[in-house]
């Protein structure tokens, strides 16, 4: 789990940095800077807040993983609990971001943004219950 989980979180975090905006115009810029500009311009503020949270979670997970890889994995359950809490919280927050994005409204006919936030809270409470139970 550790190596792939870490890679998974980096890639999904990169997704969060990408924008949910309309396709940018074809300019002479490199595609990466096109991405960055359209993200800064077109993302609603509340989604940017979620993105900041996602970046924080990703950094936290990376630090934990580096600690585990370089120093010790001795209380392995504690490492798993901490790392799984960042991965799980990241995934739940990413789900919230996808569901709360007004552009995805037609993909989720059954889920309103408020309902998505409720789902996020419910999932996080359950997740942290298991995390605390597993910390040992």
């Amino acid at each position: 789990m550790p190596p792939k989980g870490a890679r998974a979180s980096t890639s999904a975090a990169a997704k969060s940095r990408s924008s949910a905006s309309t396709p940018a115009s074809t300019s002479k810029q490199s595609p990466l800077s096109t991405l960055y500009n359209s993200y800064v311009d077109n993302t609603p503020k509340r989604l940017k807040v979620i993105d900041a949270f996602l970046v924080f979670l990703m950094l936290s997970g990376i630090i934990q993983f580096i600690y585990c890889a370089l120093i010790t994995n001795f209380p392995f359950n504690s490492f798993i609990a901490g790392f799984a809490s960042t991965v799980g919280q990241f995934v739940l927050a990413a789900s919230l971001r996808i569901q709360a994005n007004p552009e995805n409204g037609k993909t989720f006919p059954a889920v309103s943004p408020e309902r998505a936030f409720g789902d996020f809270l419910f999932g996080s409470v359950i997740l942290h219950f298991f995390v605390f139970n597993f910390l040992g």
Binding site: K4, G5, R7, A8, S9, S11, A12, A14, K15, S18, S19, A20, S21, T22, P23, A24, S25, T26, P31, T34, L35, S38
Partner: peptide
């Protein structure tokens, strides 16, 4: 799980880059 993160990310970028 890893593949899904990757595909989700790429799908999004793909739709925004001409």
């Amino acid at each position: 799980f890893g593949l899904l993160q990757l595909v989700a990310f790429v799908e999004l970028v793909r739709s925004h880059v001409p």
